[in-house]
Design a protein around this nucleic acid. Sequence first.
DNA 1: AGGAGACATGATAGCGCTATCTTCGATTTT
DNA 2: AAAATCGAAGATAGCGCTATCATGTCTCCT
Lengths: 375, 375
Amino acid sequence: MKSQSTPTNPSPNQLENPPLPRKRVTLSDVANHVGVGLMTVSRALRKPEMVSEPLRGKILHAVDELGYVRNRVASGLASGTAKVVPIIIPSLLHSVYVPFLQGVYSVLAQHGYQIILGTTEYLVSVEEQLVEAMLGWYPDGLLLSGVDHSARTVAVLRRARIPIVEIMDLSDAPMDINVGFSHYRVGVEAAEYFCRKGYTQIAYAGTLTEIDPRSVKCIAGFQKTLKEYGHRSDLIHRSNEPFSIALGGRLLNDLLEKHPTIEAIFFGNDDLAAGALFECQRRGIKVPEQLAIMGFNDQEISRSTIPAITSVWTPRLETGQLAAQMLVEELHGRALAARRVDLGFKIIQRESTNRVRNNVHFSGTGGGTARGTKS
Amino acid sequence: MKSQSTPTNPSPNQLENPPLPRKRVTLSDVANHVGVGLMTVSRALRKPEMVSEPLRGKILHAVDELGYVRNRVASGLASGTAKVVPIIIPSLLHSVYVPFLQGVYSVLAQHGYQIILGTTEYLVSVEEQLVEAMLGWYPDGLLLSGVDHSARTVAVLRRARIPIVEIMDLSDAPMDINVGFSHYRVGVEAAEYFCRKGYTQIAYAGTLTEIDPRSVKCIAGFQKTLKEYGHRSDLIHRSNEPFSIALGGRLLNDLLEKHPTIEAIFFGNDDLAAGALFECQRRGIKVPEQLAIMGFNDQEISRSTIPAITSVWTPRLETGQLAAQMLVEELHGRALAARRVDLGFKIIQRESTNRVRNNVHFSGTGGGTARGTKS
DNA sequence: AGGAGACATGATAGCGCTATCTTCGATTTT
DNA sequence: AAAATCGAAGATAGCGCTATCATGTCTCCT
């Protein structure tokens, strides 16, 4: 505090800070620029009708001019909700899960929610971590795949006191909201389908059957039904490689090698079924005359092969959309008609299971069983 | 302020709030519970080595007991970064873009970043909105698809002063970091491939060719090369429907109807190529003897059909991973060896373009040109 | 023994916004 | 014309955390 404003110093750099390290533009920057209080700016942006016309115009103009972007983090803190919804799916590598994501995204994005993505790679431990991490965003709701979670996950979610939506599979005792279809019933109806057609040597071939609870349930329904019909139910072939067309061919070969008398195979996914079909073509096995093939998920490939492959259509996109819609309703405080919705599935019959030669109708013409129970 | 604490009121409901609406557990709840300052708890969670062993133990225990979850929103506000990285892709409906997302997700998740997802549906206007909305998270970086953006998008991004990564296509003048491969070169090399094999009636069939700048560039390279070889370059067939196997068949039919002399077709995606192949089988057109077919993106289906389809392998997963890795490096302040990386592509020759009967080698055996320029 | 560090912990000031309450003037009512 | 009413704008207090500085030990060295 001694030498007062040393005038000996000749540097006139009072204006040497033109390249000022431009900071973030904040609400009050805009407010100052227009000459109003910052609340007015905040209102003009969120509830325009509460601000007089002329002011609003000036404010919006200033926002544009200064390039102001509302800080959603600060906004989230202040308002207690960041409008964030996590969605946790098993994997992005398997195309089957993407439509769920797409459905959820399309609806939530429209309502201004930000989705944050997590994949478990089928590991409950990862799911557990993800859930905890995502709860740190203090999300408005949370979407989970499947209905089988670790006790800790369930406990943590309950404590969060937010709407939880379990999608894909159905549970008898859902945590909260539940949308999807019963994988167990798929197994049952696939088996019934073959049984009714008179097949007796009926097999299942799939992947990740150990770690994916949905496969487990599907197989359970499949086996139970075969037993009820008095057929053998041990023709279950598993692999732990990821789904792929090529794998379908290998599964087929393995299965036929061990059990050459097999008449019909239900595959855990359409790509497997298609791979098996291609392999049949290579080996000269006639489909459906010598072997019937059914896929799962009704992906486009099953519609396009020659012969086209019978498959189980599943409401993937629809599940995602409805789940998101229900969540939005709930968040807006509107009562839900049902908290558990069975969107059903449908067996789409095509040539690959039509013993009697009949190479007609491509798209979902027939024989399917529709389900749509709501509870 | 008149009647002081009306003792006439007999209601003894001083304790009527036992079902207290449990609030969020905060840092200071934990701190109070342990009997320390809240900074100590904050440190114990983020920089454990700065807190003494015994205290740390007690704190972690209390965290667990109370079910404390760090509020990332508050944390983000206070620290100025929420560890968030948006990624904007064209669409989730088309499976081609998912591997990019998967690559990015896997790397960023590992580094504790939260990705937030946006899809443009090929509309620059949507991209513009998305970018602005996402900037509201004050992200650490931002990943964009393609290199063609509106002027406003570019301006807004520049002002954000964060690392931007453009993926998929390459630009001569990237905004910042750029990883991918040249779609123009794909067009060039696909055309060269056919020309060298002696084809002269060479067509292109694709989708979204108007609105997807990558298709546009690919076609440009394709046409230019055909012209250089002295062949006609007007056999370009477009559709605006989304990619699908079925569409491939229709494109094929349209093309053959107008130009029955076509010898070779380059399809904008593998599913189209597969659909065309299936249609050829239906119509009795022999592939490759009567018609050569090449796909794009080397998806699994092209490996599995009979004959297998020649396709252009593209580094989708790799691009996503590298882009994310480079972003992480940049964010950690480490210098990048290159800010623009060409990951190349590769023509995988299979039977669908082998005029001389030769049904051998499945996976990437031959003829391909590898590229890997880095700049 | 005395002071410089080194280390562990606490106190405090925001980050940028929204909820809420207050103020102020203009309009309406009788 | 005075009181009641209403709409528009401002002032203020946090939201839950982190950065930073201040404090208070406990060594370690000369």
